[in-house]
Design a binder for these strands. Structure first.
Lengths: 201, 201
DNA sequence: TGTACATCAGTGAACGCGCGTTCACTGATGTAC
DNA sequence: TGTACATCAGTGAACGCGCGTTCACTGATGTAC
């Protein structure tokens, strides 16, 4: 029979709190710069307990990246009547000062991107899967050009993803400056050319 | 009179070698993950000597970012007969597998971007200055739309910068996979829509 | 009803190691007289 | 020509600290008989 000093699901709850704390700390301070001690202290536990939940720090990173992506979904899946409007809404919310100024809850690609290539093997397939998901969604809603001229909807969707991630990450390096704001607004304006179906020339 | 155990300019030479070593190591392993010890060992000196050249690690980071940008200039300033061709050449070289696979010599925005917001105050103005330089160059070569429709040349230039940085950084997270290659090729194809002057609709 | 035992989430001290930085010192050179 | 001194790039040991990880232990609970 199950023996329980703690209420049922207590350990799962602790684990979740560790992932949540790490997700916040990694995104604000960076992965390498955040120790297990800091994460566990944030949860209210000691560092030793960490290894009852995870094999290693690397294992935690994988879960953090996945969870951070999942957290972002509600911000994307909000249904809109119109495809064009939906894309523009995602663009407006993602490429925004609010997103830049809240790394704690931001898309992990904008806060962790340059640390992820060295963050362990688990990360790459997670990012690939999530990118496919988001780019696929975007592609679905993009309009084809009348003459089916290049670039394709898929190309425009992936290009938009790169553009959105790059703009927010870049604007964060520039702080809350005029140029930083301009990178965001210019990217929004330029992205319109990718949202509109291409025309033959 | 000048006293010299070492040949003239020796110290300046050491300093330069420290910056070069750090530029390589930071870009391949990350800033936080690279210690002063590792940098100095790479140069063939001991860690103690570092502080005869720099006030702190933060001070080194600033110099590394600046130097890494400057190293990239020859790859951009190559003159081409035609503005359109020049832009396409920059795009082709920047958004490429070669660039993705050589972080050691890559653009610092693609390798360090998510560490830079926390890398000290010196970094932000350097990135701002270099972005103005490169975006300005791009803007100069972009063609205006016949009816001066939005987005403006400036907006398209900044959007292109965000897109290029984002594509390379993102592709590096994805490793040497098909999806990673596709992010690069799709971005190149999609960027064409920003290089072409916008048309009225 | 009472007692010996099993369970297990979390503790807290310790492991070896590397971090950024400081500082007294070295040793090869040149200058002064 | 010889000797005392100044210069200075770099050495290497030490500072306090935090890292990721391990592990014997705690203590509250439930089970067995």
């Amino acid at each position: 029979m199950t023996v329980m000093r703690y209420p049922a699901g207590h350990k799962e709850h602790s684990r979740e709190r560790i992932v949540d704390a790490a997700a916040r700390l990694f995104r604000t301070r960076g992965i390498t710069a955040t120790g297990i001690d800091a994460v566990m202290a944030d949860v209210g536990l000691t560092a030793g307990a960490f290894y009852a939940h995870f094999k290693s720090k690397q294992a935690l990173v994988g879960e953090v990246v996945r969870k951070s992506f999942v957290e972002g979904r509600p911000r994307v899946f909000s249904p809109e009547d119109d495809d064009r409007k939906w894309i523009q809404g995602v663009l407006r919310r993602y490429v925004s000062r609010a997103h830049r100024d809240e790394p704690e809850t931001a898309c992990p690609l904008t806060t962790l991107i340059s640390e992820l290539p060295r963050a362990g093997e688990a990360v790459q397939p997670i990012v690939a899967e999530e990118l496919e998901l988001y780019a696929g969604l975007l592609e679905e809603k993009l309009e084809d050009g009348a003459e089916r001229t290049a670039p394709t909807r898929r190309q425009r969707a992936l290009g938009l993803c790169a553009m959105m991630v790059g703009a927010v990450a870049l604007s964060r390096v520039l702080g809350k400056t005029k140029l930083s704001d301009e990178v965001l607004s210019a990217t929004r304006a330029a992205a319109a050319s990718l949202i509109e179906p291409p025309v033959a020339r």
